Amino acid sequence: MLGLTAMGSAMAQSNYPNKPIRLIVPFAAGGTTDIIARAISEPLGKELGQAIVVENKGGGGGVIGAAEAARAAPDGYSLSVATVSTTASNPAINPAITYNPLTDFTPVINMAATPNVVVVHPSFPAKTYAEFVKEVSSNPGKYSYASSGTGGIGHLQTELFKSLVNLDMQHIPYRGAGPGLNDAVAGQVPIMFDNLPSALPFITSGRLRAIVVAAPERVAAISDVPTFNEVGLEPANRMAYYGILGPKDLPPDIVEKLNSALKKVLAEPAVAKRIEDTGSIVVANSPAEFAKQIQEEFEVYSDVVKKQNLKLE
């Protein structure tokens, strides 16, 4: 027979949700993570019968918001948006992070994934991938690249790329992708590895040149740009993901209810279009599949940190 505490817990779960749900976005408003969170928040609230309240908790490359999400009660009323930066690249390089991405969260779903692209300033003396590699290889240490900050996906994915082709480029970390992109467009720094959605307007306007893209197949908007798979660098062909996590020990029935509701929401044409308009693709996988993705990304970037001897700057 169930004790009073267990009965109360079971009743709370069966009535879930019976109050608004907080969705922590560990980055400032306006970026791809925030856009995708807001694309699903209203329809998810309608599906669940309770409001989804988006809270932006930026700072530390997403670590501050992710740490707060990890400390939340496992009752389904505090969820967070997970990115490669918060669950893989930053934890891989920063031993001071207060959460373990593999044990302190309960994966719910990977909502969407976004291609990443290597871009150069139009003045850069290379127009193709082969020319780019030749130019950088011939001038070790001459070129620098911008990133959203030390430990972010742009930083570690570039280091992964460098390790695979044995390139020597200097890292210039910025306080966010926006400032780094602005300096790349201005020609202050010649190279950047960025999310396609934020770089695409500058590519299409000719203010940046795309060299190679991390995506399952060529992207229609830049159809002349090869993928990393095409140039023989399959390990670098890694997209950014945007998933939903709960704190560890989130009850399985709540996980299943959230996963099912999110799959319905992500299948709605209006929601899918809003996500695809950012340059992303809808994924909508299972909790187990998302858990596997997180582990794989964390292992990949942990290896990059060791191989490249990376440390916080």
Rank of each mutant, 00 (worst) to 15 (best):
L44F: 03
V165N: 00
G8F: 13
H155V: 06
V283A: 09
Q295S: 05
L23N: 09
S85I: 05
V213F: 03
P107A: 06
S85K: 00
S80T: 10
R207T: 02
S9Y: 04
A261K: 05
P269L: 02
K307S: 14
M7N: 01
K292Y: 04
Y143W: 08
N100H: 03
S14G: 01
D224P: 03
P287V: 00
A28G: 09
I24R: 04
N182P: 00
S85L: 03
M111W: 00
E131C: 07
S41N: 03
G65D: 03
Q293L: 05
A66R: 09
R238G: 02
V219R: 06
A214V: 09
G45D: 06
G58K: 12
R175S: 13
A12E: 11
I172V: 15
A39P: 11
G8Y: 13
T33M: 09
D104Y: 09
F161L: 12
L245T: 05
G141W: 13
A28I: 06
A215M: 11
I254V: 15
K134W: 01
I254L: 12
L102P: 01
S147G: 07
A69C: 12
S80E: 03
S89G: 04
D253N: 14
T278Y: 07
K142I: 02
T158C: 09
N110D: 11
L102T: 13
A29S: 15
T87R: 11
G243Q: 12
N56M: 07
P20Q: 07
V189N: 02
P251T: 04
D75H: 06
Q50A: 15
G49C: 08
K307G: 05
E296H: 09
L4I: 14
G8I: 14
N90L: 11
A72E: 11
K311A: 14
M239I: 01
K273T: 02
V225P: 11
S9H: 07
T227C: 02
R274C: 01
I36P: 12
L266T: 11
D168E: 09
A12H: 06
K263D: 08
I222G: 08
G30M: 09
G152F: 08
A220N: 12
D194Q: 02
K127H: 12
A12Q: 11
L102Q: 11
I254A: 07
A270T: 14
F105N: 09
G3D: 07
Q295K: 13
